[in-house]
Design a protein around this nucleic acid. Structure first.
Lengths: 153, 153
DNA sequence: ATATTTGCAAACTGTTTGCATGTGT
DNA sequence: ACACATGCAAACAGTTTGCAAATAT
C-alpha cells in the first residue's frame, strides 16, 4: 500500500515512484515510471497486455517487451506480486511478507497479515501433518463489499 | 482416492476405470483408459506432455491432442483437478468437494476435508471481512514426510 | 450406417530472447 | 564515450482447432 500511495494522483507521487525504483536498483526511466503508475491505478491484478494497452492508449511509445521486463524487475524486488492463471496478472504490493486474499467477484486483492494467516493454518499441521507456506498460498473467495452487493442485488 | 484405487495395479482396476468413464458420459476407449491409468500412477499433478510421453513410451499410439481432450473431459466431470502454474498440471481427485494441500518439496497433493478448511478460514471473515472459497484455494507448503526429511537430511 | 473419437498439421496465446538502435549520464 | 534501456521481429512453449481418416456401437 505504501507503494500504491507513492503513485497516487496527488502531485508528489511521481517523486516517490522515482525513489522506489532507485531503491530497487532500477533507473527511473519514463517507461518504468508509467508502468508503475498504471499498476498503482488498479486494485486488481492486471495483465502485461492491459498495462501495455493503457500506456499506448495514452500515447506513450512503449514495447510490450519493456512492460514484461519492468514487471519482472519489480517482482524480483518484491514490489509486485504475480498471480498465476491462464494469463499472468500483476499487482503492486508491500515489500513485507503478507497473504493475498483475492475476491473472485471484483478482483480486489486484500493484503492480510502473515501472523493472522499463520494462525488460520496452524490447525493444518496437526490435522493433515502439513505446514503452510503463507506467502505462496493465495486465497480465493469473496470480499465483504461484494457479499453485501450479492445479498442486496 | 476412490478414483485412484479404481486404477490401482490390482487386476480388477481396469473394469472400474471403464465404469467411471461411462458414468462420466465418456465412452471408455483405450486412449481414455490409459490416460486415466497414468494419472492414477502419480501422487503429484502431472502435465499433459508427461502423460503423453509416458504413453508413447509404452508404445501406445496416442496424440497429444487426445491427451488434452481427455484431461478436459475428466476435469469437467470433477475427476481431475487442474493446477495452475507456468504449465498446467493434472491430478485425479475425488468428485466430492475438498481442499488441496500441495507439497512444494515433493509435489504430493493431500485432499483435505472441506469442513476442516472452513474452520481454518472462519476467522478471515471477521479479521478481513472475506469469505473463502475453499475449493478454489489450493494451499502450498510442506508435507510431514518432507519436513521430517529436511530435519534429518 | 451413423455418430463419435482420433491424429496430424496448423493456428493461436502468452511470454521470452537476439540484436541493432536509442538514451541518459 | 559508455553502459544501460528500449523496440522490433523472431523464437518459443503450451494449448486449441479444423478436418479427414479411423473407430466404436
Amino acid at each position: 500500500v505504501a507503494a500504491r500511495e507513492a503513485a497516487s494522483t496527488s502531485g508528489t507521487g511521481a517523486v516517490e515512484v522515482v525513489g522506489l525504483l532507485r531503491a530497487a536498483g532500477l533507473s527511473p526511466t519514463a517507461q518504468r515510471r508509467t508502468v508503475f503508475e498504471v499498476l498503482a491505478g488498479y486494485e486488481r491484478p492486471v495483465s502485461a497486455a492491459e498495462v501495455h494497452d493503457v500506456l499506448r492508449g495514452r500515447g506513450l511509445r512503449i514495447g510490450l517487451t519493456t512492460v514484461y521486463r519492468t514487471l519482472h524487475a519489480l517482482a524480483e524486488v518484491g514490489l509486485v506480486h504475480v498471480f498465476a492463471g491462464e494469463e499472468r496478472r500483476y499487482r503492486l504490493c508491500l515489500p513485507a511478507p503478507h497473504v493475498h486474499l483475492v475476491c473472485e467477484a471484483c478482483g480486489l486483492v486484500i493484503e492480510g497479515s502473515v501472523d493472522a494467516a499463520r494462525r488460520w493454518w496452524e490447525p493444518a499441521r496437526k490435522e493433515a501433518d502439513f505446514v503452510v507456506n503463507v506467502e505462496h498460498s493465495d486465497v480465493y473467495g469473496t470480499c465483504g463489499r461484494c457479499l453485501a452487493g450479492l445479498r442486496a442485488g
